[in-house]
Amino acid sequence: MKIAVSTSGNDLNAPLDPRFGRAARFVIYETETGTFELADNSQNLNAAQGAGIQAAQNAASTGAAAVISGHFGPKAFRVLSASKIAVYPSTAATVREALDLYAAGKLTAAQDADVEGHWM
């Protein structure tokens, strides 16, 4: 399966971006092969509104079944859950660390948004 992880960098050692909607891109990690691709999300960096909504659609269009980021606002969460994508908030420092925590079963799927919109 594919997992989307928000980041400001370009590889698995890059920092996990704690912002979901306004992350520059997603690492799309394929668990079966251990390979990854990058999905651009930069159109949302300066979006006046609805960055979380757009980011959720971007993540969905990659075919990801789960997303990992620092926090998820209510609108992003609504789109992700309607798209049947599992949502995992994480405090991991890097993309790799987040993926390792996920593989070890140490991340808990969120049942609701964990921050208000525009939390940062």
């Binding site: 979006a47 509104q49 609805g50 960055a51 609108k75 789109v79």
Partner: peptide, 18 residues
């Protein structure tokens, strides 16, 4: 232009406040 609509699977979600 305001992300007030989103498509999730075959469903359209409306964010009225946007």
């Amino acid at each position: 232009q305001f992300n007030a609509l989103a498509v999730a699977g075959k469903t359209v979600l409306v964010f009225t406040e946007l």
